[in-house]
Amino acid sequence: MSGTILPFNGIWPKIADDAFIAETAVVIGDVEIGPESSIWYGCVVRGDVNPIRIGARTNIQDGTIIHVNHDPAGDYRETGGGMPTHIGDDITVGHMALLHACTVESGGFIGMRSVVMDGAVVEGNAMVAAGALVTPGKRVRSGELWGGSPARRMRELTSSEIEYIPYSARNYAKLGAAHRTGTKAGA
């Protein structure tokens, strides 16, 4: 493990032993990162006022910011309020995305420089296009491509796009392992 790993209010991140955390990534507070996942260069994952959960084989690419929503009534551990961020298994989050108090279900895909806002849900086998702005509370359904600002349903995904989602997650799991261990990718 590398990167800057910091506690907040006495809570340390919990990171799987085989996850890759790039040396310039910052992971703070109530964050859990699953096996074979990767947090790339320049990312910030800040679980200070609510939890962030990242599943297995999920890649959070360079420059991405992941945060949560607080509960104005007090500490989420006491009130249960505010909104956490849940990111499932086998997900690709493209470079410089912003995920805020949202849910990305296992097998979802988030394009580069896209924004997914509070209360939004990206279902498995759904894709958010590069540069899209998914506004609060929207649901990107399985099999759909959403794009634009604000994002809207553009079309159904093709079979090759659906097949690419798990391929991308597997490829980044291998690449993260190579960075973590210093071995050649794919070896």
Rank of each mutant, 00 (worst) to 15 (best):
2 S>L: 14
4 T>G: 06
5 I>E: 02
7 P>G: 08
11 I>H: 07
14 K>M: 04
15 I>H: 02
17 D>N: 11
17 D>P: 10
20 F>Q: 06
29 G>W: 01
30 D>V: 08
34 G>I: 07
35 P>L: 00
37 S>P: 06
42 G>M: 13
43 C>M: 06
44 V>Q: 02
45 V>S: 05
46 R>C: 08
47 G>I: 07
48 D>R: 12
50 N>I: 13
50 N>C: 11
50 N>S: 12
52 I>L: 09
55 G>I: 01
56 A>E: 15
57 R>S: 04
57 R>A: 04
57 R>D: 01
62 D>S: 14
62 D>T: 10
63 G>P: 10
63 G>N: 05
63 G>K: 06
64 T>F: 08
66 I>P: 03
68 V>Y: 03
68 V>K: 09
70 H>V: 00
71 D>I: 01
74 G>V: 11
76 Y>A: 11
80 G>W: 12
80 G>S: 11
81 G>F: 10
84 P>C: 14
85 T>G: 12
86 H>T: 14
89 D>Y: 02
90 D>G: 01
90 D>F: 01
95 H>P: 09
101 A>E: 08
102 C>L: 09
104 V>R: 07
104 V>N: 06
106 S>M: 02
106 S>C: 03
107 G>V: 00
110 I>C: 10
111 G>L: 11
112 M>S: 14
113 R>C: 07
115 V>F: 06
116 V>C: 09
121 V>W: 01
124 G>R: 13
124 G>I: 02
125 N>E: 14
126 A>L: 05
127 M>V: 12
128 V>A: 12
131 G>Q: 11
133 L>N: 09
133 L>C: 00
136 P>W: 01
136 P>R: 12
139 R>S: 03
146 W>Y: 05
146 W>K: 03
146 W>Q: 06
146 W>D: 06
152 R>S: 13
155 R>N: 11
156 E>D: 15
156 E>W: 00
158 T>A: 10
160 S>T: 11
161 E>R: 01
165 I>A: 09
170 R>E: 14
171 N>P: 00
173 A>Y: 07
174 K>F: 03
177 A>S: 14
180 R>K: 15
181 T>Q: 14
184 K>G: 00
